[in-house]
Design a protein around this nucleic acid. Structure first.
Lengths: 119, 119
DNA sequence: CTTGAATCTGACACTGATGTCAAGTTTTAG
DNA sequence: CTAAAACTTGACATCAGTGTCAGATTCAAG
């Protein structure tokens, strides 16, 4: 599929999809004229990438991580090196803390919302 | 307490504490010489502010929210206007989606980490 | 062939909290 | 009194993904 359709189906802008490519996160075949041609699996991949960005991972980290993830197309997965495992563990712990923070913030908002509904 | 101690106790930089003040998030008495003098409750407040920043709320939103939160010192709390409740509800829903995303990312990382431990 | 939609590359701007540095003032300890 | 530490304001930089615009090219349909 071409970039417009991928953008529409993932909700990610064309600009961002091109940026992902420069960062080595996403590859695409090219038509004879130079237009990008994505495989169906790109949809899932882009969604994953977005999730990881939302989790605060940087491009460089996602680049390392992607080949180790079991893909939707069941492609051959690499195995993380000990060094990478260490880094990913740190990321995971950071995400856990982030989740805890978010839960507290959500509860705070709910308190205020509830107080207003009753007041 | 002065800004250095507040920074140390909250883990937030002095730079950020001053920024919070310019945004109307944090007030401080001043010594005759002009140095900031924070009440004990500032510690909790700063922690809350940090959490809300981490949840993706902007200064302007936190400014609206703060007076509606029940403070640690049990100060008089304002009640959110209907308009604010609407905005806060949207924020809460966004946070809920963010949490869901984070959980997925964490699970992804755990999968890779586990695969490496066994591989 | 023609025309309009889609895509290409490249460049520049922005966001918004935070880092950092500079020059000057206040506070505190000896 | 004095020196060091802490604090002040102000300005500029940074990050990293994303928005946006311009000009050129390709694609698809009539």
């Amino acid at each position: 599929m071409r970039i417009g359709e991928l953008a529409r189906r993932t909700g990610v802008s064309e600009r961002s999809l091109r940026y992902y490519e420069t960062q080595g996160l996403l590859r695409a075949e090219r038509t004879p004229g130079g237009h990008r041609d994505y495989p169906e699996a790109a949809v899932d991949r882009v969604v994953r990438i977005q999730e990881l960005f939302a989790a605060g991972l940087h491009s460089s980290r996602i680049v390392q991580l992607l080949p180790c993830m079991r893909d939707t197309d069941g492609g051959p997965s690499a195995v993380a090196t000990p060094r990478l495992v260490e880094d990913l563990t740190a990321e995971r712990d950071r995400i856990d803390r982030m989740i805890a923070d978010l839960v507290r913030s959500r509860d705070t908002l709910n308190e205020v919302i509830e107080a207003a509904r009753q007041g």
